[in-house]
Each structure stands twice: as structure tokens, then as C-alpha cells.
């Protein structure tokens, strides 16, 4: 049983007045980037607000790109959407459930079943084979080992890595590692894929191949995808563009086909 089971009419993602404030020791707060609003306070910490009153809704089947300057809060927003981090204030409903009301275990379950997260730095488990990396979320979902290996093998095949199942991350190229990470994100059939600069470490050709995988997943499997990118032609592959600037949404519109 997953914590999320609400009528399909709700938006898949709904956030309202989301704020995120980081507290830093004043010594560590250089504030050199200039766009964090630093506020010193008496007990020696500096609060820096990164997200200001962000509200948006994303519906099932959408393919959304988030753009913005470095430091504008894109990763911060993605981490909150991915239940890897919590907002300082504001609300987040995923599939109609208020994330704030879920326990730690329920959040782990949501990350396991409902969301597939793809990182810029891949974040694969070292020294484990591609196959084991892809199969691990299934183990946490309670699937037995032989079934999970079968399913992992099928996904590696689907992302074009069938031959690399026994390779360890350090034996794979960046593009191949990202495909392993995408396979891992897909292994529990999530409704939502969140990808934070998935092509940030890859060359143009490899980026295009990765984007083709995402487009296919969105078009043929109806998976909702939110991805962060700095590149216009990557954003052009998606259906909707959200722009962040200094922690605020400054643009939200469909991408002309």
C-alpha cells in the first residue's frame, strides 16, 4: 500500500507559497554569490532565503523544463519536489497527499514507488554492478532478488545497456552511467521522474540520446517528467518551461512546438 492513492483529477504536483531558508553559521556565510538574501541575526547565524513563495501545479503526463541562472534555486526546488528535502514553509501535495503529513517511512516509500530521481552526478552505488544498482530500489520495495534482477536487466536493455549489466559505475562512460541511473529511476514504475541537470555532465550527442529516452518515456508511457537544464535546445524538447530567478517563478508557459 502506498501513501498516495487519490483521484486522478488532482494535479500530480501542487505547491503553494513554498519558501526555503537555509541557516548558516555566520563564519561560513560568505554570501559571495550575491543573490542570496542574507540576514544576520543575534545568535551568530545567517539566514539565506533561496525560494520565495513558489506556487505551481504540474499535471499528469506533462513534460516540464525548469531553467534559471546558477543559484536561482532550481536544485533546491527539485529536492523538495523529490521529497529529499523539506520546505521551510508552504505546502506540497503530491498526487493529492500533503507531503508534510507523511512520516519518514512513508516518505521513503514515496521516493521508492512514486518518484524516480535522476541526478546530475549520477549518484550510483560504487563497486556495485549496473544490474545491482538498478535492482536495489526493488529490494527496498520488497521484490525478491531473482525477480528484481530480471526486471533490472529488462530496463538496462530498454535504455540500451543490456551488455553492460555486469559493469561497475567506474567502468562506464558518463552517458552510460546516466542511463543506469535512469533505469534505476524507472525500475519501480514511478508516475513521476525528476531529473536535475541530467545532461549537465554529458556532451551534446549523448545529451540528445538521453533526451530521446525521456521523450519516449513521456510520450509512450505517460510518465510525468520535470527536468532542470541550462540549455535552450534541451528545454525545447519539453512541453512547458518554468523559469526561476532569485528563488521566484518569473516565467511559466507552454513551449511552442
Amino acid at each position: 500500500m502506498t501513501p498516495l492513492q487519490n483521484p486522478a483529477s488532482n494535479p500530480l504536483i501542487k505547491v503553494e507559497s513554498l519558501c526555503k531558508i537555509y541557516s548558516l553559521d555566520s563564519g561560513a556565510a560568505g554570501n559571495g554569490n550575491g543573490n542570496g538574501n542574507g540576514n544576520g541575526n543575534r545568535n551568530g547565524t545567517v539566514n539565506s532565503q533561496v525560494l520565495f513563495d513558489v506556487s505551481l501545479s504540474i499535471h499528469r503526463g506533462e513534460f516540464v523544463a525548469i531553467m534559471g541562472h546558477s543559484g536561482s534555486g532550481k536544485s533546491t526546488l527539485m529536492n523538495i519536489l523529490g521529497c529529499l528535502d523539506t520546505p521551510t514553509s508552504g505546502h506540497y501535495w503530491l498526487d493529492g497527499s500533503d507531503i508534510a503529513s507523511l512520516s519518514d517511512d512513508e516518505l521513503a516509500c514515496v521516493r521508492n514507488r512514486n518518484i524516480g530521481f535522476v541526478f546530475q552526478g549520477f549518484n550510483l552505488l560504487k563497486r556495485m554492478t549496473a544490474l545491482d544498482n538498478v535492482a536495489t530500489p526493488l529490494l527496498y520495495a520488497g521484490v525478491n532478488r531473482s525477480d528484481s534482477r530480471k526486471r533490472a536487466q529488462a530496463l538496462l536493455h530498454q535504455t540500451g545497456l543490456g551488455k553492460f549489466a555486469a559493469y561497475q559505475p567506474n567502468q562506464l562512460s558518463g552517458g552510460q552511467q546516466q542511463r543506469v541511473a535512469i533505469s534505476r529511476a524507472l525500475v519501480n514504475n514511478p508516475q513521476l521522474i525528476l531529473a536535475d541537470e541530467p545532461t549537465g555532465n554529458l556532451d551534446t550527442q549523448t545529451s540528445r540520446e538521453i533526451m530521446e529516452i525521456f521523450q519516449q518515456l513521456n510520450r509512450e508511457h505517460g510518465i510525468t517528467i520535470v527536468l532542470v537544464t541550462h540549455e535552450d535546445d534541451i528545454a525545447a524538447c519539453t512541453g512547458r518551461l518554468i523559469r526561476l530567478q532569485d528563488g521566484r517563478v518569473v516565467h511559466d508557459a507552454e513551449v511552442p512546438a
Binding site: 529529499l84 519518514d104 517511512d105 521516493r111 521508492n112 530521481f117 550510483l124 552505488l125
Partner: peptide
């Protein structure tokens, strides 16, 4: 350090505290 990151990854893909 290495293991903390490993724990981070495992939590991100759905491991709960107990596991």
C-alpha cells in the same frame, strides 16, 4: 564520508531508516 553518501543514495531510492 563515503558511507554517508551511500546512505544518502539509498535513502533517495527508497530505503527507510530501519533498512
Amino acid at each position: 564520508t563515503e558511507r554517508t553518501r551511500e546512505i544518502g543514495i539509498r535513502m533517495a531510492i527508497g530505503a527507510n531508516r530501519r533498512a
